[in-house]
Design a protein around this nucleic acid. Structure first.
Lengths: 218, 218
DNA sequence: CGATACATTGAGGAGGGTCAATCCGGGTGG
DNA sequence: CCACCCGGATTGACCCTCCTCAATGTATCG
């Protein structure tokens, strides 16, 4: 088990990120116990049904949380980027599977460490609250928004979370966007085409770059 | 502000409920600070946008958490019954509105109390985890399940949470079930009729009683 | 006993799913 | 350097689930 690399401090400093707001003492203690995990695209961080004894903080890359209905229907529950945390669950076992979207590195914080550290637990609780808040937002989108609105909402969210430049790097394919939004890939593609024809976005290149021409049009 | 009534201890003892698992010391301390709230049907516990400085534990009755898209589209995010907690939010302000489904009584736990009480905070964190877990379940239902499956899932959930007898008291109307499931009232009614004709449930009486004839048929 | 509110049922339409064809870029091998 | 192939995006045509609108049924209340 490696110590928390120094890059963590630099990388995870987003709004409410894991290490942000941690004072020197806390960060030092965390560094001493946090493990290091590296994943390639498609690799599983943890699987549904496996025992949950740790939380993970994303340092680099992206991770998605997936649930399946039967073998065919996949619902992506959340995307997690640098500074986010995954692994919260209920009842000691994971209810969903976490998979890396690309090459990713994470730090692993054993559950036991939180029991010993009230300050860390309080901090993690804030992140847990944000995860709940985001999940509730998704309920609204999935339950009451049209396909066009859902695609726009996703692009706005990613535009905000991944940096609001004139170009957006989508770390996932159309298929993943569809499974996140409760739609079919064809539908997502059609809505993207509509946005392109409306001059809101540019052409979606094969390496995931999407020019955002009119952010207010989302 | 009243002290936490004795009925709380008796009422809130469900799996993972607020007072369940609290030892005598904790419960005693909580009793000293918890406020008391009573609501009639349709009354607002807290509104979206209002500052969030407390958590609420449901003692009697039921509360729902609602979000609106525009003025027309309502999405019900969760139902909360005896033993559940509402009021978790992100960023100091509520993002949704909590409304009583019928006559309800709750206890109010100021946010500040949790800062002073690490044990209470740890306990509340478990409840927060369960709320997240339930919200993720809803994402799966809203994103990947048919109308028939959603209605069955709701009835199964309520049957489990409100006691698994041969009869189920639904504390909400068809309209609320629809707004929870991302459907229209007519669709929910049709699916209920289908279940009735399949002999799975009986007639849905006007006071909310629904006979569950074949629980395995849900 | 009428009025109201809600559940139910029916008929028709639209949004998004399904299936299939085509396009496109990038990798591979000649 | 180019032909070929392969995975994924795009587009089209059709269909089905669920929505919309409207009428009817039914229980509660004044």
């Amino acid at each position: 088990m490696l110590a928390l690399s120094d890059t963590c401090t630099a990388a995870i400093t987003g709004r409410g990120g894991l290490c942000a707001c941690l004072n020197a003492t806390l960060l030092g203690r965390l560094r001493a116990v946090a493990g290091d995990v590296r994943l390639d695209a498609g690799e599983v961080l943890f699987a549904a049904g496996s025992p949950a004894d740790a939380l993970y903080g994303v340092r680099h890359g992206a991770v998605m949380l997936c649930a399946w209905v039967g073998a065919e229907r996949r619902q992506i529950l959340s995307f997690h980027f640098s500074g986010d945390m995954v692994g919260f669950t209920d009842g000691g076992r994971h209810h969903a599977t976490a998979i890396a979207l690309g090459r990713a590195s994470l730090c692993r914080i054993p559950e036991t460490e939180m029991d010993n550290d009230p300050a860390l637990r309080g901090h993690v609780m804030g992140i847990l609250r944000r995860n709940l808040s985001q999940s509730l937002d998704m309920q609204v989108r999935l339950g009451r928004m049209s396909a066009a609105e859902r695609v726009r909402a996703l692009l706005t969210e990613l535009h905000g979370r991944l940096g609001g430049g004139g170009e957006l790097h989508l770390p996932m394919r159309i298929a993943e966007m569809a499974d996140y939004l409760g739609l079919r890939p064809e539908t997502v593609s059609r809505e993207m085409s509509a946005l392109r024809q409306a001059g809101v976005v540019g052409a979606f290149t094969h390496d995931g770059m999407l020019p955002i021409l009119r952010p207010d049009g989302l």
